[in-house]
Each structure stands twice: as C-alpha cells, then as structure tokens.
Amino acid sequence: MSKKHPNHHKYHLSGNEPQDSEALVEVQEERPVLLKHYIIGFISSLILTLVAYIITINHVADRNILFIILALLALGQFLLQMFYFLHVGREFSPKFKLLMASFMSLVVIILVGGSLWIMFNLNGRVMPTQSQMVKYMNSQNSL
C-alpha cells in the first residue's frame, strides 16, 4: 500500500512559513486528502440519490424488488461517502478508524436486525391461538 507514496514520511513537517509563530506542523495519519476524492464522492452520491429518487417516483419495478434496489443504492452511497468524505480506510496501519467503523456496523446490524426480528415475530409469539383463546374465555365465564 505504501508503495504508492514512496516519499511520504509519517512525520511530515510542513508549512513553516516565517509569519507563522506557531509553525504549523502536520503529522499525517492518513493518506493525503485530495480535491479529486471530494469531487468523486459528491458526483457519485448525486447520481445514486437521483437514481433512487427516479426509480421510486416512477415505480419502475415490483415493490419488493424496488426495496432491495433502494437498500443497495443506500448501502453503496454509504460506503462511497465513508471512503471519499470521511476517509475511512485511508489511514495508515493500524487502522483504528476503520476497525471502529466496522465494529459499529456490526453493532448496528445486531441492534436493528435483532429488534426488527423480535418485533415482527411478536404477534406470532405472544398472541394465543383461537382455541387457546376460547379455552381462556370459557374459564373466565365459569367464575
């Protein structure tokens, strides 16, 4: 990975302009951020947003298929913005930022997925069946 920037030093001293009393020094933990990255991130996000919007408005496919496509478009835009805007994964090893983000994704998947799994099964698990209900009502009447 570091082959791309052979003349890069981890401790890169820069910007010692004479008028700077506080001499700006930069220790870079990430590969340098370029204008190019922001432009790629912006344009691709713009395209993905518009595609998602247009296919929803025009109902181009079956609803269930659209749900999957929209989820994938959102996921794609999420990954693009994490990489191009938040520079996750562009740091030098050890990549703690990436590690933290991956772990959080796991937490979020468990939290959201788990909650939905439980909540959408709740009726089936908690509601008594018809015969159980009749039995219960009879027992109440006999009081």
């Binding site: 998602a52 408005i57 109902h59 609803r63 929209l70 989820a71 478009l73 959102a74 913005q81 994490m82």
Partner: peptide, 20 residues
C-alpha cells in the same frame, strides 16, 4: 459528513420506502 451519511438512510428508509 457524518450527518449527511445518516441522512442517506433517513432519505431511503423514511421517505423513499414510505412512498413505496
């Protein structure tokens, strides 16, 4: 940037899924 990332999901889940 983080707030924009969160908005991707609000846009998709609240608004686009809502419209569907």
């Amino acid at each position: 940037h983080f707030l924009d990332v969160v908005w991707i999901f609000i846009f998709t889940i609240v608004y686009l899924f809502g419209a569907l």
